[in-house]
Nucleic acid binder design. Structure first.
Lengths: 249, 249
DNA sequence: CAGACCAAATTGGTCAGACCAAAATAGTCC
DNA sequence: GGACTATTTTGGTCTGACCAATTTGGTCTG
C-alpha cells in the first residue's frame, strides 16, 4: 500500500477517498461506491467507512444522503480542503500558494488596522516585541519563520476580530507545515525585510494606521514574491536536475 | 424540552452541547461528561453521543481523546462556529456581524481586483449584468438581497481565487440565513447605493482596478453602515417597546 | 511527608450484526 | 412510450460487546 496502516482505519479510508476525489478520479456529481462496497474494498468495518464518509461530508467534497453519496463541486467545499489540495502533488501548487498568500495579506492587513486602533498599550508592546525579534538577530531560518508566525498571531489576537482570527489560524495551520519542503528555496532578502520591519515598528509606535497598513502590505507582498521566486528556483532546479542528471552523483 | 425531538438525536445532542460550550457553561479546558453519562442524560445511544462529540471536535470547540473530552479555546475553533455564535441569542451579535462584514469587504475587494485583471470578457459581462439588475428596478427587499449575493458569487467565481471563494462562501452560508431577522430593520439608502453600483459598472467596463477597488470598498462600507444602523434601530425599538409596553396592542 | 510507582476503574476507539426508512432501480401495466 | 408499483439497494440508527489508552487512587519507598 502507498499509505501504510499506521493511521486509524477510517483515516486511511478518508484520505484515500479524499485524494481520489480531489485528483478527479471521481467526477463531480458522480456517485461514490456504497458504504458496504467500500468496507469490502478497504477490508474494514462499515462503521469505519461511515466515519470516513462523515469526514468527506464535513470537508464538503461529498454529500451523503440515503440512496448514495455524491461528490460535490470543489468550490462548495470547506476551507479545510486547502490542506489536502496542498499535499496532492509532491510539491504544493504554486497558484494555490499564491492565492493563500494573497488572502493572508488581506486578512493580516485588516487585523493590523484593527489592532492599531483598539489594542491596549500592553498588546501593542507585545506586538512590537515580536517585530523587534524580527529586526534584531540573524536567527536560523526555522526560528525566523516561527517568529513571523508569532507576530501574525499577536496581531490577530490584538485585532479583536474573531472571524479574521479563525480564518487566518485555519489557513496557517494548513499552510505552514506544507511549506517545509519549500523552505530551502525561499530566499528572503533580509535587508529589505529588516527595513520593512523597522518601518512597521515605527508605524506601530505612532499608531499610524495608514503607515501600518502600507508597511504590512509591502511586507506581505515581499513574502509573496519570495514564494514566487522559490517556485521558480525549484522549477529551474528540476530542469537542471533532468538535463544534468548524469553529472550529479 | 426547548428543542423538540424533530431533529436527529445526535444533532440534538450536538446542538445542546455546542450551545453550552459557546455560552460558557463549560469553561475552556474543562472536562466534558463522559460519553456514557451523556448518553444516559440525553436518553440516547452512545453512538449518537459519539457522533455529536465528533461534530464538536470538527467544530474545533472540543478535543476528544481517550481519557476524556475537553473544551478548546474559542479562537482555535473552525470557521463554522460563526454560524452557531450568530444564533446564540435571539438576535445576532452586532460586533460579530460587523466583523463578518469587515472580512467580507476585504475578501470581496481582493476578488474584485483579481476578477478585473483576469476575467474573460464573458465573465465580466456576467458580472456587469448582475450589477445592472441592482441598478435598474426597485425589486422587493428579498430579491434585492438575493441579487447582491448573486453579484458576490459571480465576482468570486471570476476571481479564480479558490481560497477566497471558499471562505466567502462559508461565511455567506452561515451569515445570510441569520440576517433574515434583521431584514426589516435594514434601511439601505437606495440612491447612494444605486450611484455606487453605477460607478462600479463603469469601472468594470473600463477594467479599472483602482476604481473597482475603491467603489467596492465604498459599497461594502455602505452595507456595514446599514447593518450598524439596523442594530441601532432594533435597540431603539426594544427600548421603546419596554417603556411603552402598556400602550401598544 | 513528598514523591515515585503501580493497579484498578474509567474513558474513548473499534468492531460486529441487525433492523428501519428512504431512495434508486427494475418491472409491469396502461 | 410513459406512469405506476414492487423490489432491491443504500444510508441511518441501534445494540452490545471488547480493546487500548488514560486517568485515578492507593501504596510503597526515600
Amino acid at each position: 500500500m502507498s499509505t501504510p496502516t499506521s493511521t486509524r482505519k477510517h483515516e486511511e479510508i478518508a484520505d484515500s477517498l479524499t485524494r481520489d476525489i480531489l485528483v478527479g478520479q471521481y467526477r463531480c456529481g458522480e456517485r461514490l461506491p456504497s458504504e458496504r462496497d467500500l468496507a469490502a474494498r478497504f477490508d474494514a468495518n462499515r462503521g469505519a467507512v461511515r466515519e470516513a464518509m462523515k469526514k468527506l461530508e464535513q470537508l464538503g467534497i461529498a454529500s451523503v444522503q440515503p440512496g448514495g453519496a455524491r461528490v460535490a463541486p470543489v468550490h462548495e467545499a470547506s476551507l479545510d480542503v486547502i490542506g489536502h489540495l496542498l499535499e496532492l502533488g509532491d510539491l504544493p501548487d504554486a497558484d494555490l500558494v499564491d492565492q493563500i498568500l494573497q488572502v493572508m495579506r488581506c486578512l493580516m492587513t485588516l487585523a493590523a488596522e484593527s489592532a492599531v486602533e483598539r489594542a491596549s498599550d500592553e498588546e501593542l508592546l507585545a506586538i512590537r516585541r515580536r517585530v523587534q525579534s524580527l529586526i534584531e538577530d540573524p536567527q536560523d531560518r526555522a526560528a525566523h519563520v516561527e517568529a513571523r508566525f508569532e507576530l501574525m498571531r499577536a496581531i490577530m489576537e490584538a485585532s479583536g476580530n474573531l472571524v479574521c482570527r479563525l480564518i487566518a489560524r485555519s489557513l496557517l495551520v494548513q499552510f505552514a507545515p506544507r511549506m517545509a519542503s519549500l523552505d530551502q528555496f525561499v530566499h528572503l532578502t533580509v535587508d529589505a525585510h529588516r527595513a520593512l520591519a523597522q518601518r512597521l515598528d515605527v508605524a506601530l509606535a505612532a499608531r499610524d494606521v495608514n503607515a501600518v497598513r502600507e508597511t504590512f502590505e509591502a511586507l506581505s507582498n515581499h513574502s509573496r514574491e519570495a514564494a514566487r521566486q522559490a517556485f521558480a528556483a525549484i522549477r529551474a532546479d528540476a530542469a537542471a536536475g533532468i538535463s544534468g542528471k548524469e553529472v550529479s552523483s
